[in-house]
């Protein structure tokens, strides 16, 4: 679990300001650019449904396990009750949990897809996210299809479910081992942010790992690191480009290119 990093959506009726360069972008233009800043190539965060509609052929997506929800197994009491927090997040996002899974077609390739949504409790992984990812991998095995995951999770393992969340890391990593044994392809896409327990489990285990430009990716959150080492962090630390230089990811692909790149990769398997 890492520090939450809020992304402020600076918006008015007409458009949005870029979080990075401050450029004002008209709503229509932003949609056309797939929520990428035309001036500085900043990739705004996307919801899970937006990501799916960006990649999959219209009308082909069939969602699975859409009715699975958390039920506060620890009876967790912070400043607010976890069970209240879940309902609140469901209302806010229109999602039942922090991941959407299902099947669909990317061009002419049938795939199993799982997308975490960083708006729902920072995209953190509790029992539901772990179970849905695991079932998605099992479905890929059953149907002999490639698995594609898109991670957007600043929260890592969800602390409100305690050890149950931590063990989802072991569970999802175990099922990826099974996928490998079955010789099925697993492509992992890392978006801003992919941290903590999600980065330290399935998201880092792709046969091919692709990141969006400038996405924050890492194990520990920058704030925790800064507090530990009492030193300023280097420019661009834990960004996709930083990871690429150090050989930790295969490629960085812009949002507009992603579908084409994935399709051409899938052609090779």
């Amino acid at each position: 679990m890492i520090w939450p990093r809020k992304q402020v959506e600076r918006t008015n009726g007409l458009g949005m300001r870029c979080n990075d360069c401050g450029e004002f972008i008209l709503g229509k233009k932003l949609e056309k650019m797939l929520k990428v800043c035309p001036k500085c190539n900043y990739h705004f965060r996307l919801g899970a449904r937006e990501r799916i509609s960006l990649l999959l052929k219209d009308g082909t997506f069939e969602e699975c396990d859409s009715q699975m929800t958390s039920h506060d197994p620890l009876n967790f009491q912070g400043l607010e009750l976890y069970r209240d927090k879940i309902v609140e997040e469901q209302k806010k996002t229109g999602l039942t949990e922090a991941v959407i899974t299902g099947e669909g077609y990317l061009d002419n390739h049938p795939i199993v897809i799982a997308v975490t949504d960083s708006r729902f409790m920072m995209g953190s992984m509790g029992s539901v996210v772990g179970e849905k990812i695991t079932r998605a991998a099992e479905r890929a095995i059953e149907k002999r299809l490639p698995l594609l995951t898109i991670s957007g999770s600043g929260g890592g393992a969800r602390m409100q479910e305690g050890m149950l969340s931590l063990m989802q890391m072991a569970k999802t990593s175990s099922v990826i081992a099974k996928l490998n044994k079955e010789k099925l392809l697993f492509i992992s896409i890392l978006t801003d942010p992919t941290m903590g327990g999600v980065a330290a489990s399935f998201a880092s285990l792709g046969d091919i790992i692709i990141a969006e430009p400038r996405a924050l990716i890492g194990f520990a959150g920058p704030r925790v690191i800064k507090e530990t080492i009492h030193r300023e962090l280097p420019q661009g630390f834990q960004r996709a480009e930083f990871l690429f230089k150090r050989g930790l990811i295969d490629m960085i692909v812009s949002r507009g290119e992603l579908k084409k790149v994935l399709s051409e990769l899938l052609d090779k398997f």
């Binding site: 890391m169 072991a170 990593s173 175990s174 980065a199 330290a200 489990s201 399935f202 998201a203 880092s204 285990l205 990716i217 890492g218 194990f219 520990a220 959150g221 925790v224 690191i225 530990t228 080492i229 962090l233 280097p234 630390f237 834990q238 930083f242 150090r246 930790l248």
Partner: peptide
Amino acid sequence: PGIGAEERGQAEAIARNL
């Protein structure tokens, strides 16, 4: 949680072990 640990892939190292 440190710079070197992140540079050398702390998340990957743990994930691989799991």
